[in-house]
Protein backbone atom coordinates (compact mmCIF):
# COMPACT_ATOMS: atom_id res chain seq x y z
CA UNK A 1 0.00 0.00 0.00
CA UNK A 2 1.18 3.51 -0.70
CA UNK A 3 2.23 5.77 2.13
CA UNK A 4 1.01 8.90 0.40
CA UNK A 5 -1.84 8.86 -2.08
CA UNK A 6 -2.99 11.87 -4.02
CA UNK A 7 -6.06 11.66 -6.23
CA UNK A 8 -7.66 14.31 -8.43
CA UNK A 9 -5.99 17.20 -6.63
CA UNK A 10 -7.07 20.66 -7.78
CA UNK A 11 -5.87 23.98 -6.43
CA UNK A 12 -6.40 27.54 -7.64
CA UNK A 13 -5.04 30.85 -6.48
CA UNK A 14 -7.75 33.31 -7.44
CA UNK A 15 -8.53 32.64 -11.08
CA UNK A 16 -5.23 30.87 -11.73
CA UNK A 17 -5.50 27.11 -11.63
CA UNK A 18 -2.16 25.92 -10.33
CA UNK A 19 -2.92 22.22 -9.90
CA UNK A 20 -5.26 20.70 -12.48
CA UNK A 21 -5.88 17.18 -11.28
CA UNK A 22 -2.86 15.48 -9.78
CA UNK A 23 -2.75 11.74 -9.18
CA UNK A 24 0.32 10.41 -7.45
CA UNK A 25 1.09 7.53 -5.12
CA UNK A 26 4.31 7.30 -3.16
CA UNK A 27 5.33 4.06 -1.48
CA UNK A 28 6.99 3.88 1.90
CA UNK A 29 10.77 4.25 1.52
CA UNK A 30 10.47 5.67 -1.96
CA UNK A 31 12.44 8.74 -3.02
CA UNK A 32 10.57 10.90 -5.52
CA UNK A 33 11.86 14.02 -7.24
CA UNK A 34 9.43 16.57 -8.64
CA UNK A 35 10.88 18.60 -11.48
CA UNK A 36 9.46 21.14 -13.87
CA UNK A 37 9.61 24.77 -14.86
CA UNK A 38 8.84 27.42 -12.29
CA UNK A 39 5.12 27.97 -12.11
CA UNK A 40 4.36 24.36 -12.98
CA UNK A 41 2.87 23.79 -9.52
CA UNK A 42 5.69 21.75 -7.93
CA UNK A 43 5.93 23.67 -4.69
CA UNK A 44 2.17 24.06 -4.40
CA UNK A 45 1.76 20.29 -4.68
CA UNK A 46 4.29 19.79 -1.91
CA UNK A 47 2.63 22.40 0.29
CA UNK A 48 -0.76 20.77 -0.21
CA UNK A 49 0.56 17.44 1.04
CA UNK A 50 1.13 18.81 4.54
CA UNK A 51 -1.74 21.25 4.53
CA UNK A 52 0.14 24.53 4.22
CA UNK A 53 -2.17 25.20 1.29
CA UNK A 54 -5.81 24.27 1.37
CA UNK A 55 -7.08 21.97 -1.33
CA UNK A 56 -9.96 22.91 -3.65
CA UNK A 57 -10.82 19.39 -4.78
CA UNK A 58 -9.35 15.92 -4.56
CA UNK A 59 -8.04 13.65 -1.83
CA UNK A 60 -4.74 13.34 -0.05
CA UNK A 61 -4.20 10.32 2.15
CA UNK A 62 -1.17 9.80 4.34
CA UNK A 63 -0.69 6.38 5.94
CA UNK A 64 -4.35 5.59 5.37
CA UNK A 65 -5.72 8.79 6.88
CA UNK A 66 -7.39 11.44 4.76
CA UNK A 67 -6.28 15.06 4.97
CA UNK A 68 -8.96 16.93 6.91
CA UNK A 69 -9.58 20.60 7.32
CA UNK A 70 -9.80 21.07 11.08
CA UNK A 71 -6.71 22.23 12.93
CA UNK A 72 -6.49 19.02 14.98
CA UNK A 73 -6.48 16.85 11.83
CA UNK A 74 -3.95 19.08 10.15
CA UNK A 75 -1.66 18.82 13.15
CA UNK A 76 -2.00 15.05 13.18
CA UNK A 77 -1.08 14.99 9.50
CA UNK A 78 1.94 17.23 10.03
CA UNK A 79 3.31 14.87 12.64
CA UNK A 80 3.50 12.23 9.92
CA UNK A 81 4.94 14.44 7.20
CA UNK A 82 7.87 16.75 7.95
CA UNK A 83 8.83 19.66 5.74
CA UNK A 84 12.05 21.42 4.89
CA UNK A 85 11.95 24.83 3.27
CA UNK A 86 14.03 26.68 0.74
CA UNK A 87 14.68 29.48 3.23
CA UNK A 88 15.44 27.13 6.18
CA UNK A 89 13.05 29.07 8.46
CA UNK A 90 14.96 28.29 11.63
CA UNK A 91 13.76 30.13 14.71
CA UNK A 92 16.36 32.92 14.98
CA UNK A 93 15.87 33.47 18.71
CA UNK A 94 16.71 29.89 19.58
CA UNK A 95 19.95 27.94 19.35
CA UNK A 96 20.35 25.05 16.92
CA UNK A 97 19.68 22.63 19.78
CA UNK A 98 16.60 24.52 20.95
CA UNK A 99 15.29 24.64 17.38
CA UNK A 100 15.40 20.85 17.28
CA UNK A 101 14.03 20.42 20.80
CA UNK A 102 11.12 22.88 20.67
CA UNK A 103 8.42 20.96 18.82
CA UNK A 104 9.47 17.76 20.52
CA UNK A 105 8.72 19.37 23.89
CA UNK A 106 5.72 21.48 22.91
CA UNK A 107 3.94 19.14 20.51
CA UNK A 108 5.01 15.68 21.61
CA UNK A 109 5.33 16.61 25.27
CA UNK A 110 8.75 15.04 25.67
CA UNK A 111 10.54 15.91 28.91
CA UNK A 112 13.41 18.34 28.51
CA UNK A 113 16.22 15.86 29.09
CA UNK A 114 14.78 13.40 26.60
CA UNK A 115 14.25 16.12 23.98
CA UNK A 116 17.78 17.35 24.49
CA UNK A 117 19.28 13.87 24.10
CA UNK A 118 17.25 13.37 20.94
CA UNK A 119 18.25 16.79 19.59
CA UNK A 120 21.93 15.96 20.14
CA UNK A 121 21.49 12.67 18.28
CA UNK A 122 19.72 14.40 15.38
CA UNK A 123 22.33 17.15 15.13
CA UNK A 124 25.04 14.47 15.18
CA UNK A 125 23.22 12.73 12.37
CA UNK A 126 23.50 15.83 10.16
CA UNK A 127 27.09 16.37 11.25
CA UNK A 128 26.43 19.35 13.51
CA UNK A 129 26.75 17.86 16.98
CA UNK A 130 29.26 20.58 17.87
CA UNK A 131 26.85 23.40 16.96
CA UNK A 132 24.20 22.63 19.57
CA UNK A 133 24.55 26.03 21.24
CA UNK A 134 25.08 28.13 18.10
CA UNK A 135 22.38 30.56 16.99
CA UNK A 136 21.17 30.35 13.36
CA UNK A 137 22.81 33.69 12.56
CA UNK A 138 26.18 32.17 13.51
CA UNK A 139 25.77 29.30 11.05
CA UNK A 140 26.32 29.13 7.30
CA UNK A 141 23.34 28.55 5.02
CA UNK A 142 24.30 24.92 4.57
CA UNK A 143 24.56 24.40 8.31
CA UNK A 144 21.23 26.13 8.88
CA UNK A 145 19.57 23.85 6.38
CA UNK A 146 21.08 20.81 8.07
CA UNK A 147 19.71 22.04 11.42
CA UNK A 148 16.32 22.38 9.71
CA UNK A 149 16.59 18.76 8.57
CA UNK A 150 17.51 17.66 12.10
CA UNK A 151 14.54 19.65 13.42
CA UNK A 152 12.16 17.85 11.06
CA UNK A 153 13.70 14.44 11.82
CA UNK A 154 13.29 14.96 15.55
CA UNK A 155 9.53 14.65 15.09
CA UNK A 156 10.10 11.15 13.63
CA UNK A 157 7.98 11.72 10.51
CA UNK A 158 7.00 8.94 8.12
CA UNK A 159 8.00 11.10 5.16
CA UNK A 160 9.90 14.30 4.49
CA UNK A 161 8.92 16.95 1.97
CA UNK A 162 11.88 18.97 0.66
CA UNK A 163 10.98 22.22 -1.09
CA UNK A 164 14.00 23.30 -3.13
CA UNK A 165 16.20 22.81 -0.12
CA UNK A 166 19.41 23.87 -1.86
CA UNK A 167 18.10 26.74 -3.98
CA UNK A 168 18.97 29.45 -1.46
CA UNK A 169 22.50 28.13 -0.89
CA UNK A 170 25.84 29.24 -2.27
CA UNK A 171 27.09 26.62 -4.74
CA UNK A 172 29.86 25.41 -2.44
CA UNK A 173 27.33 24.69 0.34
CA UNK A 174 24.93 22.63 -1.79
CA UNK A 175 26.98 19.44 -1.46
CA UNK A 176 26.81 19.18 2.33
CA UNK A 177 23.01 19.43 2.33
CA UNK A 178 22.58 16.97 -0.53
CA UNK A 179 24.93 14.64 1.33
CA UNK A 180 22.56 14.57 4.29
CA UNK A 181 19.56 14.02 2.01
CA UNK A 182 21.39 11.18 0.27
CA UNK A 183 22.04 9.51 3.63
CA UNK A 184 18.37 9.82 4.58
CA UNK A 185 17.41 8.19 1.31
CA UNK A 186 19.87 5.38 1.93
CA UNK A 187 18.40 4.84 5.40
CA UNK A 188 14.98 4.28 3.84
CA UNK A 189 13.27 7.59 4.59
CA UNK A 190 10.39 8.40 2.28
CA UNK A 191 11.31 11.61 0.49
CA UNK A 192 9.41 13.84 -1.89
CA UNK A 193 11.63 16.59 -3.14
CA UNK A 194 11.09 19.51 -5.42
CA UNK A 195 14.50 20.14 -6.86
CA UNK A 196 16.55 21.77 -9.57
CA UNK A 197 19.50 19.47 -8.90
CA UNK A 198 19.02 17.14 -11.85
CA UNK A 199 22.23 15.18 -11.32
CA UNK A 200 21.17 14.50 -7.76
CA UNK A 201 17.65 13.51 -8.80
CA UNK A 202 19.08 11.10 -11.35
CA UNK A 203 21.44 9.51 -8.85
CA UNK A 204 19.28 9.26 -5.72
CA UNK A 205 15.64 9.09 -6.75
CA UNK A 206 13.56 6.01 -7.48
CA UNK A 207 11.10 7.99 -9.56
CA UNK A 208 10.98 11.39 -11.16
CA UNK A 209 7.78 13.36 -11.66
CA UNK A 210 7.83 15.98 -14.41
CA UNK A 211 5.15 18.59 -13.86
CA UNK A 212 3.86 20.84 -16.58
CA UNK A 213 1.03 23.35 -16.34
CA UNK A 214 -0.39 21.89 -13.15
CA UNK A 215 -0.40 18.28 -14.24
CA UNK A 216 1.86 15.28 -13.90
CA UNK A 217 3.17 15.30 -17.43
CA UNK A 218 5.54 12.36 -17.23
CA UNK A 219 6.55 10.02 -14.48
CA UNK A 220 9.08 7.22 -14.33
CA UNK A 221 12.48 6.06 -13.17
CA UNK A 222 15.19 8.69 -13.66
CA UNK A 223 16.96 6.70 -16.36
CA UNK A 224 13.86 6.81 -18.54
CA UNK A 225 12.84 10.35 -17.75
CA UNK A 226 16.22 11.87 -18.47
CA UNK A 227 17.40 9.56 -21.26
CA UNK A 228 14.17 8.96 -23.15
CA UNK A 229 11.73 11.79 -22.56
CA UNK A 230 8.49 10.98 -24.32
CA UNK A 231 6.90 14.42 -24.53
CA UNK A 232 8.29 17.49 -26.28
CA UNK A 233 7.88 19.55 -23.08
CA UNK A 234 10.10 17.22 -21.05
CA UNK A 235 12.54 16.97 -23.94
CA UNK A 236 12.83 20.76 -24.01
CA UNK A 237 13.18 20.89 -20.25
CA UNK A 238 15.92 18.27 -20.15
CA UNK A 239 17.71 19.79 -23.14
CA UNK A 240 17.97 23.15 -21.42
CA UNK A 241 20.24 21.38 -18.97
CA UNK A 242 18.40 21.99 -15.73
Amino acid sequence: MSLIEIAGLHKSFGSTEVLRGIDLAVASGEVVAIIGRSGSGKSTLLRCINGLESVDAGDITVAGEALGTGEARLRALRLKVGMIFQQFNLFPHKTAGQNVMLARQVVRGSPRAEAEALARRMLDRVGLGAKFDAYPAQLSGGQQQRVAIARALAMEPLALLCDEVTSALDPELVGEVLGVVRELAAEGMTLIMVTHEMAFAREVCDRVVFMHEGRVHEIGPPAEIFAEPRTPELRAFVARGH
Partner: peptide, 10 residues
Protein backbone atom coordinates in the same frame (compact mmCIF):
# COMPACT_ATOMS: atom_id res chain seq x y z
CA UNK B 1 4.89 27.83 8.26
CA UNK B 2 7.92 26.18 9.81
CA UNK B 3 6.26 25.94 13.21
CA UNK B 4 3.00 24.74 11.64
CA UNK B 5 4.90 22.09 9.70
CA UNK B 6 6.28 20.85 13.03
CA UNK B 7 2.73 20.31 14.24
CA UNK B 8 2.46 23.34 16.52
CA UNK B 9 -0.96 24.86 17.10
CA UNK B 10 -1.74 28.57 17.12
Amino acid sequence: EASAALGMGY
